[in-house]
Every structure is written in structure tokens, then in C-alpha cells.
Measured scan of single mutants.
Amino acid sequence: NKASVVANQLIPINTALTLIMMKAEVVTPMGIPAEEIPKLVGMQVNRAVPLGTTLMPDMVKNYE
């Protein structure tokens, strides 16, 4: 099973992601793959992301 990106803390709306906000975890359903973490740094979330939430592509602005 591949790990996904999971919020390590509450991430407020429009916050630019940093490494300490994210962790890799095997979850179902899968979200953004953990190997994308370096690419996510500096990208903004378009909603508040609660602690423990799996990051999905539609939660990150301009994620492709």
C-alpha cells in the first residue's frame, strides 16, 4: 500500500503548506501520494483541513 499525505495539524484556509504540516500515512481512500510532499510545499489549501485529514487533490490550489 502506498502512503498518502495527511494533515499533521489543523491547516487554516489559504495557508501555504510547509513540511511540518504534513505526514505520510497509509489511508483509505488514498489521497495525494506521499512522494508529492516536496511539490506541495508552498502551495495553498483552498479550505480548512482538520488534523488527521487526508489531503485530496481538490483541497490544494493549482495542484495537478
Rank of each mutant, 00 (worst) to 15 (best):
A3V: 12
E64H: 09
M43P: 00
T18Y: 04
Y63Q: 03
E25R: 06
A3K: 04
M56S: 08
A3M: 05
P12F: 03
T15Q: 05
M59N: 11
G31K: 01
K23S: 11
P57G: 14
S4C: 10
G31S: 03
N62W: 03
T54W: 02
S4V: 03
I37Y: 02
P57C: 15
M21V: 06
I20A: 03
T15L: 04
K23P: 01
V41R: 10
E36M: 05
M22Y: 01
K23Q: 03
A34M: 06
N62D: 05
M21C: 05
V49C: 06
V49R: 06
I20C: 15
L55M: 11
L51E: 08
K61R: 07
V60R: 00
I13V: 09
T18F: 06
P33K: 07
L19M: 07
T15R: 07
K23Y: 10
L10Y: 11
Q9A: 07
K2N: 15
M59L: 06
I32R: 00
A16M: 09
T28P: 02
P50D: 10
K39T: 03
S4I: 02
Q9V: 08
M56W: 04
T15P: 01
V6H: 07
E35V: 06
K23L: 12
A24G: 14
E64I: 14
K23W: 08
N46C: 15
V26F: 07
A48S: 07
E64K: 15
A16C: 15
I20F: 08
P33H: 09
N14P: 02
E36Q: 11
A48K: 13
G42A: 09
P38T: 12
I20S: 14
M22T: 04
P38C: 13
E25C: 11
Y63E: 03
K2Q: 15
P57W: 11
D58G: 09
A7S: 05
L55K: 01
N14T: 06
V45S: 06
P29L: 15
I37L: 06
T18G: 04
M22C: 11
L10T: 09
M56H: 04
P57K: 12
T53K: 13
L17D: 01
L40N: 01
V41Q: 13
T28M: 13
N46V: 13
N62C: 15
V49I: 13
L55V: 07
K61C: 14
M56D: 10
E35W: 03
M56R: 05
E35H: 04
V60H: 00
T15G: 07
E36R: 12
V60E: 00
L55S: 00
L51F: 10
V6F: 03
V49W: 02
V27A: 14
A3Q: 04
P50V: 05
P33A: 10
M22L: 12
N46L: 11
D58C: 15
Q44I: 05
S4T: 11
P33C: 15
G52R: 06
P29A: 08
P50K: 11
L10V: 14
V26D: 15
A7Q: 01
A24E: 14
T53V: 15
E36V: 08
V27P: 03
T53Y: 05
R47E: 13
G52W: 15
N14C: 13
E36C: 15
E25N: 10
Y63V: 02
L51V: 14
M22N: 00
N46A: 11
V5S: 06
L55H: 00
L19K: 08
V26H: 09
K23V: 10
L40I: 05
M22E: 01
L17F: 03
V6Y: 06
M21S: 09
R47V: 12
L19A: 12
G42V: 01
S4Q: 03
Q44K: 10
A16V: 09
I37F: 05
Q9F: 09
P57Q: 08
K2C: 15
E25T: 09
L17K: 00
A34Y: 14
I20D: 09
S4G: 13
T18L: 07
A3C: 15
K61I: 09
I13A: 13
K2R: 03
P38L: 04
G52N: 12
M43W: 10
V26M: 15
V60A: 02
M22P: 00
T54S: 09
P12I: 12
V41Y: 11
Q44H: 11
M30Y: 04
L17C: 02
G42D: 06
E36Y: 07
P38N: 08
P12A: 06
N1V: 15
E35R: 02
L40T: 02
P50R: 04
Q44T: 13
I20M: 06
A7N: 02
L10C: 14
G52V: 01
A24F: 15
P33D: 07
I37E: 06
M43N: 12
V27E: 03
G52F: 05
L17M: 11
V41C: 09
T54D: 00
M22Q: 02
V41G: 04
K39A: 05
M56Q: 07
L10M: 09
P57I: 14
L40P: 00
V60M: 09
V27C: 13
S4W: 02
V6K: 08
P12K: 04
V26E: 15
P50L: 11
A24H: 13
I11F: 01
Y63H: 03
P29D: 14
P12D: 09
K2I: 15
G31Q: 02
A34Q: 06
M30A: 06
I20R: 07
P50A: 08
V45N: 05
N14M: 08
A7W: 00
I13E: 12
